[in-house]
Amino acid sequence: MPAVSMTVNGKPATADVEPRTLLVQFLRENLRLTGTHVGCDTSQCGACVVHVDGKAVKSCTMLAIQAEGANVTTIEGLANGSQLHPMQEAFREHHGLQCGFCTPGMIMTAVDMVNRKGNELDDHTIREELEGNICRCTGYHNIVKAIAAGARSMGTGGARKAAE
C-alpha cells in the first residue's frame, strides 16, 4: 500500500493507504476526524467539504493520495482553540443548523465563499454559491442569514480569517 503524507489541521499525518481510499475516508477512518460527513455518493451534497490548500473541495471526490503534501483543514481545525470561528458562531446565532449533519460542509463552504467573494454577500450570491451543498432540515433560510452575518463578522477587526 502506498504511503501518503499531508498536514491536517496543522499537524502532520502519514499513513499507508489503499489507492482507492478517498480523502474523506482517510480523515474519518485513519485520523478519526469524524466531523467531515458523507451524505451522498454522487458528489452533490457537500457534507464532506474540507479545505485543501485553502480551497473548498469535496473530500469524497478526491483520493487521499491526491492530497499528498497538501495542507488540509477540516471542521475540527476551524476554531482557534475554544474560540469559535466567526462562521461557526454565526451558524449558532442564526439557527443555521438543525440535525447538524450537513453543517460542517456548509460552514467550510461558507468560509471558502467569503475567502473568494468577500465579506458583503447578498442572498442571491449566497444561494448560488451553495449549489453544491444540500440541507434537508432548514430550507436554507437561516443558513443564508448565517452566512451573510458570518461573512460580515469575518471582515470586522475582532474576527480572524480561516485557520489556514
Binding site: V49, K58, T109, R116, E131
Partner: peptide, 9 residues
C-alpha cells in the same frame, strides 16, 4: 460548471 468545490478540482 458543477459547484464551487467541484470547480476547484
Amino acid at each position: 460548471i458543477g459547484d464551487p468545490a467541484v470547480r476547484h478540482m
